[in-house]
Amino acid sequence: MSFKRMATIMGGTFGLVAAAPLFVGDIRFIMHILIMCLIWAVVASCWDLIMGFAGIFSFGQVAFFAIGAYSSAIFSVNLGVPAVLAMLLAGLFTALIGVLVGLPCLKLAGPYVALVTFGVHMTLMPLLRGKIGMALGSGGSVGILTIPPIRIFGYSFSSANLVPTFYFALLLAMACTAVILVVIKSHWGTAFLALKDSEDFAMSLGVSAFKYKLMVFALTSFLTGVIGAFYGHYIGMISTRMLELDLFCTLMVMVVVGGIGMFPGTILGAFITVIANELLAPLGTYRAMVMGALVVILVLLLPNGVMGFWLKPAEAEAPAA
């Protein structure tokens, strides 16, 4: 897909969303959902960048998200760092963790990478709940319940004033996804595609798989960390409950709905999934079951997700055999 078309789809989506407060600005519930959509759009897009474009089957997205949220909260609560700076530091810290996780992954085959990255997710819960977490200020199993909101020039962005916070989230989401767009369409993106097609051939042309894969780990975990930090300051509280499997599954649904490797489909995927989740809420216990069935059906019938509708036949992923 061309840069122009991607940018158009993104611009259109964000433009539509930006107009939403005109109609629903005074409905807290919907504003909150929209902000969450924007947050998930970034997390899901990062997942798509690492999985769909770079071909690294990473399962560490939720873990990076939580690391970002926790580190920013700890910086601002315990060390008194202003929230905006704490978010940036949290992003850098998460990127560092991302690189550390990425290093051992680079030599591994798909399911192994998934396992190692998911292992980070699995170990994070006991770590944050245990003595080590407590010493770092994670609040143990209670979590951190008093995270200060983001303040810029004395103006605070929190769940108390949702419309300005919404626009803050929108700008942040636009910035993050713009970075992803630029990366995909840059020299990097081409390198990823080459690596995905044939790693040996790409390497013979001097494309270093190692370098690019490590860079994509750093970048996606940086963005995920920043948006995770924003999440913490926005909600005002975080706990290890973020690491339960529910969020993981929802994010996965977003990526599938948006189309794997079909950026900016994940942005649409995030909105569609969250809205579908809310519409299905009256189903209660059946909701999660329906979401699961939906994933199976979508993967089988609509392998490019909703982006399948935008693709020209020639661009659609051709079956290999």
């Binding site: 909150h32 969450m36 979590g143 769940s159 999440y231 409950r241 339960e244 529910d246 209660g284």
Partner: peptide, 12 residues
């Protein structure tokens, strides 16, 4: 559905 009590779910 409070699901698994993630912060934003509780708030939502």
């Amino acid at each position: 559905d409070s699901k698994e009590f993630a912060p934003e779910v509780v708030m939502q």
